[in-house]
């Protein structure tokens, strides 16, 4: 099922081209949108929300055209911006109720869903206190709650882990994953941190300078590669030299050795070399490609 798609989407500003002939398609589940700052992620979201017209090309969100049906799209889409967007003098409950009403929920439903949603994002008693006194992690949760409160079909998250400590990141990513799986809401999550997306996404789209660099399922990006990592206690150089002699391709990477697997014999050669040199083998593992490699 296609949640959103763009066709040769281009956005030119007087000085820069933010999006350049971008053609992507996003299915259900969690999709990561990766790109450095200024790669065109925010512009893409604005166009998809129908807030900014495209210069050329077209887009569809939930089968609707943002250029003409922006309002219907915005009714079933949630958006969590990257920047701070919360009034400090209101409580999370008041604020999320208000935002739910702005999304078109009737008053009593808005209250019920605000309470539910705040509970889901993990805000407890503190939700009755003014937002001004919240930690960054709590504010991010409120931002997420306001995007979820009207039960959207798709949710756009712009750098949801910004400013969070490692534990906060983990919790936020777990939440994003839950939204995509358990809640059954499709997620488009922007980030410039690839490692994060690797953990929660089903599919990753990489853009650079407004162009599509790559779009593929997470499995393709991180499939097992033909490289094994070898770690021995001492004598890494000796081992590397021996393996090179026998015609294998090796590279010393810090305290480990990266060994290209030619064929099954490579494993035998490695075993024999370790035994002959009388080394202590600590680790031998198959390496997985990381999304970072896309950029190499």
């Amino acid at each position: 099922m296609t949640i959103l798609a763009t066709e040769a989407l281009t956005k030119r500003y007087p000085r820069v081209t933010a999006l350049d002939q971008l053609t992507v398609s996003v299915g259900a589940g969690v999709t990561g949108l990766v790109g450095a700052n200024g790669a065109g992620k925010s512009t893409l979201i604005k166009i998809l929300l129908g807030l900014v017209p495209a210069s050329e090309g077209s887009a569809r969100v939930l089968g609707l055209d943002p250029a003409t049906q922006g309002q219907e799209i915005r009714r079933s889409v949630g958006y969590m911006p990257e920047h701070d967007c919360l009034p400090p003098d209101q409580s999370a409950t008041e604020f999320v109720v208000h935002m739910a009403r702005m999304s078109g929920l009737p008053r009593t439903t808005a209250r019920e869903r605000a309470a539910d949603t705040l509970r889901h994002v993990g805000l407890q008693e503190e939700r009755y206190r003014p937002i001004g006194g919240y930690s960054t992690g709590m504010k991010q949760r409120v931002k997420l709650a306001q995007a979820l409160v009207h039960d959207p079909k798709v949710i756009f998250l712009d750098e949801p882990t910004n400013g969070l400590d490692p534990q906060g990141r983990d919790e936020m990513l777990r939440l994003v994953h839950r939204i995509g799986t358990e809640f059954g809401i499709s997620v488009l999550v922007c980030s410039h941190l690839l490692g994060e997306l690797e953990r929660v996404c089903d599919h990753v789209i990489v853009i650079e300078g407004g162009r599509l660099l790559r779009s593929s399922a997470i499995g393709e990006l991180t499939q097992a590669s033909q490289v094994i990592t070898v770690e021995v206690e001492e004598g890494l150089e000796k081992l590397a030299a021996r393996l090179t002699e026998t015609g294998e391709t090796v590279a010393v990477e810090g305290r480990t050795l990266a060994l290209q697997v030619r064929a099954d014999e490579t494993y035998d050669l490695l075993r024999d070399a370790v035994v002959d040199l009388d080394l202590n083998l600590v680790r031998l593992e198959q390496r997985h490609a990381r999304i970072e490699d896309v950029f190499r």
């Binding site: 929300l49 807030l51 309002q71 915005r74 009714r75 889409v77 949630g78 958006y79 911006p81 920047h83 701070d84 967007c85 919360l86 009034p87 400090p88 935002m99 702005m102 999304s103 078109g104 306001q146």
Partner: peptide, 14 residues
Amino acid sequence: RHKVIPLYLSRPVT
């Protein structure tokens, strides 16, 4: 001041 406007604009209200 607190940049709340984008949240309104991402909803049906114009």
